[in-house]
Design a protein around this nucleic acid. Sequence first.
DNA 1: CATGAATGAGGCTTCATTCAT
DNA 2: TATGAATGAAGCCTCATTCAT
Lengths: 225, 225, 225, 225
Amino acid sequence: MPMVLEGDGGRDRGESERETFIRGARRRQLVECAIEVIAEVGLARASTVRIARRAGVSRGVLTYHFRDRGELIDQVIARVYELGAETLEPSLRVTTTPREFLLAFIGSSVEFYAAYPRHVAALHAVFAGFEDDAPTRGGDRRHIRELDRLGELLFEGQTRGEFRDFNVDVMARTIRQALDGALAHVVAGRPAQPYAAELQALFDAATRSAAPPSGEPHEAHDDPD
Amino acid sequence: MPMVLEGDGGRDRGESERETFIRGARRRQLVECAIEVIAEVGLARASTVRIARRAGVSRGVLTYHFRDRGELIDQVIARVYELGAETLEPSLRVTTTPREFLLAFIGSSVEFYAAYPRHVAALHAVFAGFEDDAPTRGGDRRHIRELDRLGELLFEGQTRGEFRDFNVDVMARTIRQALDGALAHVVAGRPAQPYAAELQALFDAATRSAAPPSGEPHEAHDDPD
Amino acid sequence: MPMVLEGDGGRDRGESERETFIRGARRRQLVECAIEVIAEVGLARASTVRIARRAGVSRGVLTYHFRDRGELIDQVIARVYELGAETLEPSLRVTTTPREFLLAFIGSSVEFYAAYPRHVAALHAVFAGFEDDAPTRGGDRRHIRELDRLGELLFEGQTRGEFRDFNVDVMARTIRQALDGALAHVVAGRPAQPYAAELQALFDAATRSAAPPSGEPHEAHDDPD
Amino acid sequence: MPMVLEGDGGRDRGESERETFIRGARRRQLVECAIEVIAEVGLARASTVRIARRAGVSRGVLTYHFRDRGELIDQVIARVYELGAETLEPSLRVTTTPREFLLAFIGSSVEFYAAYPRHVAALHAVFAGFEDDAPTRGGDRRHIRELDRLGELLFEGQTRGEFRDFNVDVMARTIRQALDGALAHVVAGRPAQPYAAELQALFDAATRSAAPPSGEPHEAHDDPD
DNA sequence: CATGAATGAGGCTTCATTCAT
DNA sequence: TATGAATGAAGCCTCATTCAT
């Protein structure tokens, strides 16, 4: 979940275009509080009362600004994605090859985690808790789109000959999972940069197309789907 | 969490209440039901009433056989670890080098997921939900031990020269995360074997030391010392 | 409640005259366990499971020997009254005047508490908890009879001129309450004999018919009923 | 427990949540309902649902206004102590000697019981039920303070020569118990005043020193020192 | 805009009791 | 006689939500 490749920065834009400024500010503030609480106690324990208490407002405010607890959670997701996009995009834009992109993606993702550990932890907790909620939620689709996007880049690398002939979906998913692992590391308060460097080296080694020795160490490159 | 390297097979066995055979059978049956429900709806939504309904018994039966919801969950953890140990051990015992061990570990882990997708999904859900529950749970320590164990093997591989000079903790954590990804894939009903093969290739590439002698990528070179 | 003037020693005699000896022994043992548990944790928390555990038997045994939890409690009451009668009667029989009787009654009651603090505490807890149970319980009536009995003796003392002209019911009730206070003192582990001596002096002073000074310190000796 | 010598009138007032007027009124109303229910069925059977039903509100209202059932009970205790202090203080303030104080204390205590029989019965039930609940409760300490206070007065009476040389703790405890007996009498619907007069006479007789000068039983002899 | 008040569903647990063996 | 197994009622609590002000 922590992978953020694109962000539309506040969905619902246009749903009620005439958002008063104060209303918007209030909403953002509440979303920040929700993020903190979720990061600290998990999604299930992040009750509206707890979030309201953190914000120093009454319970009703939440249901006033957000029709639903669900909508609040959606805004949490949107906010973190927005932040993620802001953080990642500059680094990614300057890359020129798939390999560079991959390394930059890993590196700036971890940097993002280090810069906003609570935000990302909250997002992670939200996705981890979604098995408990309604099966289809806003963020999930975004999530899928991300996997697709990373997949496209890996595929492009293979086409260019930069990457070896791995299954793109497996690799994309594994990268995502590896970054989740980095998140746990960072959230635990341990140094981010070395972890990022290790991951970069790991996936560089895992993807690069050094002439594979004959003898086929492992079978099957069939589409695992 | 899906990594299972060791299992003590039924914790608390004989703790002052001798296990009647029938009692043991009932408990196992209830644990299986709990596993199914947790796998389907997640830990938080796996209420005692839902589990009891699944088992076709009254709610009280659960608190009769398990002092606590917590104890039931503990038994779920124990059961899956037990199964995992049974499944993995044979494959792992016959390995002779760290690399073989690594590949076998990945391969038979995914096999395990394919054989017991619901069980492993339940275990995964349990650990995912633990951030919300009491911080220290029985299975958690087991978990740590696993990471240590895998780390030791990776280190041994580096010592023998089979593996390159990566950070052992990062690699171990990443492997674990990658297997979690495999679990999601398998639970979604997609073929396990090709996914396993891809992961083996991925981590083989990610771990192997420089260019091994051609023709023999890096076959078991049992330290002749 | 701790006042015990008469005991019929095991009511229900004749209800099932052919009580096997073993059955009777079992029942007595269970009653003793119930007494201990009630004395320790109070009536409300003295659940059948706790009592059974204390006795080292299964829960079913209780409902086997006693149709009801209520019947078990009744037996507890009966047992303590029985003990009380055994303890008090010798002391009381040798008295020859109402004043002697009163002092002996107070003294041997407190001795009884000191000899069987847990039993008496259990009885006390049972009566304290009865407001929660069915309003009319076996022991209650016995209780009333006791008050009557003490009242008769006080009245006899007044007739003989040994006692002053107090209201008999009020005095009887107050003596009973004072003994309850002694029970709390004894159960708390503090020395019984001095407390008894003080109570004897107190009620000796309160009842004796020294020529009351004119001037009427207090009005109304009307029947307070 | 029915002895009320001092009351701080509403504990916890202003504890971080300022008492809205309406909120305060609601709370008081609910406390009154709780008092009625407890007086009628005892503490153990005074479930939240019963209290809510009595108040004509939903169960949730209770946990909305009182974090806990325990807090509600605490408020019951506080309320009755508050009432007791209001009732007793005027009578006690005008006394000038320990003996007067003792008689006024007994008299106005019973008056209090007669004025608020249900309230006092509830308090009594609460304390009777506390052996089953958490051992240390708010009101308990207040209780101890009362015994101490009465003890001090008795001691002062001995020092002045008004009272004979009894053990102060035993006498204080016995007075308290005697008042409990009066409560039972009053709650049963029988006339309070004659009972009070009897108790006054009883403890006057029980405490007074030797034979006081005839004609003036023992009128206030303010220590002229 | 904001709040306090109220609601009712849902969850976990304890417990007395019944039943089949 | 004794036991383990099972049941269902009742209690307390948390929580998301609605409503009137």
